[in-house]
Design a protein around this nucleic acid. Structure first.
Lengths: 172, 172
DNA sequence: GTCTATAGTCCGATAGAC
DNA sequence: GTCTATCGGACTATAGAC
């Protein structure tokens, strides 16, 4: 992150990163499959929080509500990271290949969330749709939170955006 | 596509592709910014169909219904491509970097759809949420259609999945 | 750790179309 | 005369094979 913030992502080579860590470039690629992944290594933590939150919901809770609880838990964690999360987001936004990887990670969160809903007894089709819609709302909420540093905390934004989602998707 | 199907994507070099087209590798990169993009060059056609479909909806139609009309129009086109669309999807599914690019293109469709909804007078926040949810449903429908070659045509699947989305996101 | 292939950029040169 | 398409060569970084 120091190198990326100081010189920019694309002008930082994998050799630079390895040198800063006191390692050889080859060893860098032993820890990370490619250059981008160093920025996404911790995303599995978010996945775990969301999945655990889904599993912790009472049995009679609707799929999107169970997911909402998991996303809320993930939002609490990200909100705690504060400026670090915003700095990381700025680096990712600066480069198309990083934005692509970010989308792939969100897709992984969708899959993990859907699986956790299926685990609760939800059928696969509605589980996948609830996961897609819920994570999309989470992504929208995160963007809104990042762009308003003086605004409300992320968990509140997530809850609000989920409510907006329900309103706009509501059957006529 | 011939080279990708015959030898696989990663064992086909940009030099191979250029040679098959009777061009130099350098000229390949004049037409496409990177190796993957050759598989996604036509995606703007889908964007146009969806955007035009949104614009063509009557003024009193709800955001997600307007988007549904656009997605339906796009689905008619893709359904017509039939086996070619399925072959292309198989190539993309075979490689992580291609799946990432596909997600990026879908993200572009979300942005274009949201802009078309705003053009209709919808506020930005609900426009973005409707676009995210609707395109997610479209993606789910496409996957279902690809995996069931003997199943119903894509436009029908899209309509069905959009209805499923409404049911699972419906306010309690 | 070494060695190598591939992707992708930069520079410049050429030639036909309008 | 400008625009667009082509090609060639040298170069770097990423990434994989061994």
């Amino acid at each position: 992150m120091e190198l990326f913030v100081e010189h920019g992502y694309e002008r930082t080579t994998t050799a630079d990163i390895a040198a800063r860590a006191g390692l050889s470039e080859r060893t860098y690629f032993r820890h990370f499959p490619d250059k981008r992944e160093v920025l996404f290594d911790a995303t599995h933590l978010l996945d775990s929080l969301v999945v655990d939150g889904i599993a912790a919901a009472p049995a009679d809770v609707a799929p999107l509500d169970a997911l909402g609880g998991g996303l809320h838990a993930g939002a609490v964690m990200l909100d705690g990271l504060g400026d670090h999360a915003r700095a990381r987001t700025a680096v990712i936004a600066s480069q198309a290949e990083l934005r692509e990887r970010e989308l792939a990670k969100m897709s992984g969160l969708v899959a993990a969330s859907a699986a956790a809903l299926v685990q609760r007894g939800v059928d696969e089709a509605p589980a996948l749709l609830a996961a897609e819609a819920g994570v999309a709302a989470f992504r929208v909420a995160f963007e809104r939170w990042v762009s308003t540093p003086a605004g409300p905390p992320l968990p509140d934004v997530v809850d609000a955006v989920l409510a907006e989602l329900r309103a706009v998707v509501a059957p006529a």
